[in-house]
Structures are given as structure tokens and as C-alpha cells.
């Protein structure tokens, strides 16, 4: 008799009986939507308004470990794609999900992931309308990879509705919605060989409420982004690359949790380069800075929102950091892999 917990086999991916069972018992149960229930090869979607502008994005998610404090790959794969739509100033509507599962992956773990995806989709008010599953041989994947694609429509006031992309202007304010590096350190703390004890949780969250709040008070948002891989430093460099303006960032204005600060000291990381999964950074005209901060602070995940930098014509195309000591230095994009130092 086999006492091992049920796990995914290659037969679950061969399109036969087990595949159908997996789809109906695991995926349909959790994601239940009229489009999925059709069990067709593609989802047929209802028409949109004649003025609606569609936004479409895709993101693949690989994370080690799959379950981390404050989230898991499921929650991340939904929030990540919804956030990519949100920062365009779009209301998310539909998601597709694609799973690549390594042979031997526990069915119970898959169910956990799928149910947190369903929960996240519900929270975001989106329907999962189509999906795909593949199983690969043991060793060909690291447990589970998830791809999600998302469709949304631009909201009124989105910077992307304007005919000309808005340019940054001297003295514009750079606003950050909260503390940096929570996701990067929470995930890193659970890696094999690191495993330090911390109560820190990943900030993995949907930032659409933040975007909505900002759009409601500021009709002239220049640009919005979620500073994920590469961190805030990389995002700000993307803002100014090739522009006539630069950004001065104030180190002492940046919210940091003490656990993140401590871990960075210990591991030799810079929080400005760590990944975030539930933060919004945006540039607005100075006159709107206070109103936007106050609007963000009313959201649960934006309480620490604050102005962290200013656009300046002094350093075109560059980001400079005003350190907490008052000195200034270049803040570059992340280069290479962040590698821990020897001593």
C-alpha cells in the first residue's frame, strides 16, 4: 500500500483522464468562472464599451521558496500581473493562468497555491477565464512555475490615455507608498542555507486601490510603476533614462523596516535594490504631492506614503542619492546578480 501523499505525475499532463480530473477537481473548483466552465480552447469575452482602451500584460513567476512569510507563488502570480495593469492606470478584468509543474509535486501544495490564487483574483475583482497545465520530468523545473496574463481597461485620468507621454518636469515630486525590501528579505530569509528567524512578511499585495486613490486626486500623474525586481533604484533609473531630467532621492526619507535594515547590514545588501511586491512609486507635479500622499495614506497598504525624491534638471538622465550624511552620489541600476561579499 502506498502511504505517500498524492503527487503530480507525468500522466497528469498527458491530456488524458488524470489531466481532466486535475482540471475539474483542482482548478475549476477554485477558479470557477463561466468562461472556464465552457471548457473550450479559448475564452469568449463580453464586449467592452466603444471608448474602452484595452491593456494587456504577461508575467511568469518563479520563486524559491514557493511558500514564504506573507504569501506564496499563487498570490504573487496574481498580484504581480494585476499590479502591472494597475500601474498603467488600468482596472484589471481578466486573467489567464499557465502552470508548469515538476513531476512529484504534492497535490496538496498545488491546492494551496491554487486557492490563494482564487482568493487573490476575488480580491482584485477579476475572473480567471482560461488556463493551461503542463507537467515536466523531475529535475526539469523547480517545483512549480506559473505564468499569468491579464487584460484590463484604462481608467479615466490614466497617464496612458494622453496622446503624448507626459514628461517629467523640474521639481516634480517622487512619491513612494511604503517601506522597501520587505519581499526581498522575507523570501531570502527562508532560502536554504540562510534561514534566519524574522517576523518579517512579504509585502505581496494588490496596489490597484493605491492607483485609484492617486488618480482621484491628481489629474496630472506623470508616471507610475511598481518597483519589483531591481528595486526602487532600478525603477527610478528607468524613469529618467534618456530624459532631460534626473531625480534626486533622499535616503533619510525612505521608509525601511528595522528587520530589513538589519538583514541588509548582515548580508551586505542595499534595500534600494531589493524586490518589492506591493509598493507603488509615482511622479506627480509638486502642487499635488501632499494631496496624493494623503490619499495614499488612507489606504491600508499606503500608510507610510511619502515624498522620497524630487525631479531635477541638474543631473539629466541620472539618479543621485542624497545620503543621510548629506553627501551625494550616483545611484545606478542594479548590475549583475546581487552577490554576498566575502567579509
Amino acid at each position: 500500500m502506498n502511504n505517500n501523499p498524492p503527487s503530480i505525475t507525468l500522466a497528469h499532463g498527458n491530456g488524458g483522464k488524470l489531466t481532466h480530473e486535475l482540471i475539474s477537481k483542482v482548478f475549476l473548483d477554485a477558479f470557477d468562472s463561466p468562461e472556464l466552465r465552457m471548457k473550450a480552447d479559448s475564452a469568449v469575452l463580453p464586449p467592452l464599451g466603444p471608448q474602452d482602451r484595452l491593456v494587456f500584460t504577461t508575467d511568469s513567476h518563479v520563486v524559491t521558496p514557493l511558500f514564504f512569510p506573507g504569501g506564496d507563488i499563487g498570490k504573487l502570480s496574481v498580484a504581480g500581473t494585476l499590479n502591472d495593469l494597475a500601474v498603467m492606470g488600468a482596472r484589471p478584468l481578466y486573467l489567464s493562468v499557465g502552470f508548469i509543474i515538476e513531476e512529484g509535486f504534492l497535490v496538496s501544495d498545488l491546492k494551496r497555491v491554487v486557492s490563494s490564487m482564487a482568493l487573490a483574483a476575488k480580491e482584485g475583482g477579476v475572473r480567471i477565464v482560461t488556463g493551461d497545465t503542463k507537467v515536466v520530468e523531475k529535475g526539469a523545473a523547480d517545483g512549480l512555475f506559473i505564468n499569468t496574463s491579464g487584460i484590463g481597461v484604462l481608467l479615466e485620468g490614466s497617464p496612458n490615455l494622453r496622446t503624448k507621454a507626459p514628461a517629467l518636469e523640474d521639481t516634480d515630486a517622487v512619491i513612494l507608498s511604503g517601506s522597501l525590501g520587505d519581499h526581498g528579505i522575507a523570501v531570502y530569509s527562508k532560502r536554504k542555507g540562510i534561514d534566519f528567524k524574522t517576523d518579517l512578511q512579504s509585502d505581496c499585495a494588490q496596489i490597484f486601490p493605491l492607483v485609484q486613490a492617486a488618480l482621484a486626486v491628481c489629474p496630472e500623474i506623470r508616471i507610475m510603476r511598481d518597483p519589483t525586481r531591481g528595486g526602487l533604484a532600478t525603477t527610478l533609473n528607468e524613469f529618467v533614462a534618456g530624459q532631460a531630467m534626473g531625480i534626486e532621492l533622499f535616503e533619510n526619507k525612505i521608509p525601511l523596516k528595522k528587520e530589513v535594515k538589519g538583514a541588509c547590514e548582515l548580508l551586505g545588501f542595499d534595500p534600494l535594490y531589493l524586490a518589492n511586491e506591493g509598493k507603488l512609486v509615482l511622479v506627480v507635479p509638486k502642487a499635488y504631492a501632499n494631496a496624493v500622499c494623503e490619499a495614499l495614506q488612507k489606504c491600508a497598504i499606503g500608510r507610510e506614503a511619502t515624498v522620497v525624491g524630487l525631479v531635477t534638471k541638474e543631473v539629466p538622465g541620472k539618479v543621485i542619492l542624497r545620503t543621510s550624511l548629506g553627501s551625494r552620489r550616483i545611484l545606478d541600476m542594479l548590475t549583475g546578480e546581487m552577490l554576498p561579499r566575502i567579509c
Binding site: 542595499d270 545620503t323 548629506g326 553627501s327 551625494r328 552620489r329 561579499r341
Partner: peptide, 25 residues
Amino acid sequence: YALFRYGLTDLLPANIKMVHGPGCP
């Protein structure tokens, strides 16, 4: 690393020249 990370050379007068030594393993 610390000199650059904190921009300390920006706080020194021009007649102090920091010379970087071989102590990087």
C-alpha cells in the same frame, strides 16, 4: 566600499586624496 556607499569623499576637502589599496580579497 564604505567611502563610496556613503559618499564620504564628497565631504572631504580637495587636498585630501583617498588612495584605494589592495585589501579586496
